[in-house]
Design a protein around this nucleic acid. Sequence first.
DNA 1: ACCTCCTATCAATGAATATTGATCTATAAG
DNA 2: CTTATAGATCAATATTCATTGATAGGAGGT
Lengths: 106, 106
Amino acid sequence: MTAVAPSTKKAVTLFHALSDETRLALLERLKDGEQCVCELTDAMKAAQSRLSFHLKVLKDAGLVEDRREGRWMYYSLSSQAIEELEDLVDSLKKAAKSAGSARRCC
Amino acid sequence: MTAVAPSTKKAVTLFHALSDETRLALLERLKDGEQCVCELTDAMKAAQSRLSFHLKVLKDAGLVEDRREGRWMYYSLSSQAIEELEDLVDSLKKAAKSAGSARRCC
DNA sequence: ACCTCCTATCAATGAATATTGATCTATAAG
DNA sequence: CTTATAGATCAATATTCATTGATAGGAGGT
């Protein structure tokens, strides 16, 4: 019954940020807690500019936060966007449960 | 502490399917119940081949199911993939809550 | 001031994706 | 059997995204 998702753009951004193997791997690592970029590049054997790019995508989507400490940048999960995600998935789930009533068409 | 998500590929596919405005709009419509392609093309004023393409992406990701009835194809939400989504988001949420413990680095 | 280390950004290339219009298949109706 | 309709698929193009290597900035250390 929902008219048109009010913030479709936001949802697209969120899901897009999650739709990449490298970025999911980053989030997976951040589940263990805050980490600095050097640690991530090291652990993932990835080029620095590559991770920097992906971390920016995650940050722009609101999925991670960054914090500077000296010359290091620390990244960590941000629960904010994750809750929005939860809501999106929830509304889908509810709708999926109330099975589709076949309607005459065309 | 999770090693490496076992089915990262699956997650990427799921999130990618959701990372498009047209596809989110389709899902939004399907929340109201099963609908045939002609109804969707009509309502969304989109080219038929375009929707067919996006519906395929959604179907390949397991987010929708199709059913043929005469010459019409009916699409509906599939709760299967949606539950996988829920799990993915859940594990992120839990990790985000146990705030990141800053660790010495580099 | 200089040099070094950590990270972000930029420019160029290459790879995936989306869009369009045309064609093909299947089902139904006459 | 012919025609019409619903939808999928294909080929070509346009667009968007990721990767790489180079450069630039900012913070410490000497």
